[in-house]
Design a protein around this nucleic acid. Structure first.
Lengths: 195, 195
DNA sequence: TGAAATCTACCAACTAGTAGGAAGGCTAAA
DNA sequence: TTTAGCCTTCCTACTAGTTGGTAGATTTCA
């Protein structure tokens, strides 16, 4: 995920891992400054205010996620495998600690204290992720791959909550293996309707 | 949940709702001071340091939760109803916004930056909640009420993640109704094994 | 009377943010 | 080809406000 070599890219990368660790109020310009060896004022040159910095950061994150999900739909034909690939992505990120938590899930917890410009983007991420999952579930059901108990929209919400809750449990217990323990049965359930 | 009239009780109540809104770094002594009309120094008289305040707050919360869960096991005979009552409790708290998020789930997100004394207690809460759910599921299975796909320990983790993820989704979408949309099917699934 | 609770008045460190200057690189005219 | 101007980046140095926390005096009340 971290590939930017430009200063603004490094600032965003650093801010992102700080947000993932402690949320919006869990980092300061001084933290970023210390992490990448640049003065605070230089960060303000690139991102005048904190709200602006996080807004752009969330925009970039959403773009990466949306891009990833869309190319997943293009490159993987089976909806079942698309879903599995999405979960494998997170499992890898959590296991190698490269992105141990969803940026927007982290920020969603602080929703009430977020600047409106950030909050609306977090909301948008939840909507588009729910949309992607819904459409994968729909297509998979049409193809006879899935058999759902509830409407695809609701099953998507259940799946999404499971993923976010699993991330939280991984943190609380300090056990990355918990992620698949929690999430895998949720797909199995969709795939094997008759037991 | 808020019943304390003593100053230290009011401090804890206020700190708790501030933590629920913005986590450990999302509140200050000044915030509490302003909320209950007392000077900052007076709060320090009751709780010398922030870490100590939150430690005691989490201890109190855990005591309330453990007490609630235990009395639920005593007063409600059927494990299925115990489980339902636990979920109803959260549904009510979320709907009337009296306790719209689990204190420990909130803090778990910031695990890495928490004072060790707080982090260990958050971890303990997750362990005891998982334990309670596990034992309810076990008893229910022995009584033929539940039919589990996985081991009770794993089903408990799945359920817990679902609850926490649902809380997050409620926040992100600003829709309290989502909680039961996400969580209810999880119990239905345990209750009605043959479909 | 004496302890607990609250107060005023501090403190050093940190917060986001600003002003203004120096250094480098790009372009365009001489 | 030089040079002037400009733009971007980064810097030092600063601000006002906030942070968690302390010292010590005053009030409240059993």
């Amino acid at each position: 995920m971290k590939s930017m070599t430009s200063t603004s890219g490094k600032i965003l990368d650093t801010a992102q891992s700080l947000i993932i660790a402690g949320g919006y109020n869990g980092f300061s310009y001084a933290d970023i400054s210390a992490a990448i060896g640049i003065r605070k004022a230089s960060i303000h040159h690139h991102f005048p205010t904190k709200a602006e910095l996080v807004t752009i950061l969330v925009d970039r994150y959403r773009q990466q996620v949306d891009g990833g999900l869309n190319s997943l739909r293009e490159q993987v034909s089976s909806p079942a495998e698309q879903l599995q690939a999405y979960l494998n992505f997170w499992q890898t990120c959590i296991r190698d600690a490269s992105l141990p938590f969803c940026v927007c899930a982290m920020l969603a917890g602080e929703m009430q204290m977020l600047p409106e410009e950030v909050a609306s983007r977090v909301r948008a991420h939840f909507h588009s992720l729910a949309g992607w999952l819904t459409s994968v579930l729909k297509t998979g059901t049409e193809q006879g791959l899935f058999q759902l108990d509830k409407r695809p929209e609701e099953e998507a919400q259940m799946l999404m909550a499971s993923v976010h809750g699993a991330m939280l449990s991984v943190r609380a217990f300090g056990d990355p293996g918990l992620f698949s323990t929690i999430v895998s049965p949720q797909i199995t359930r969709l795939l094997a309707p008759a037991r």
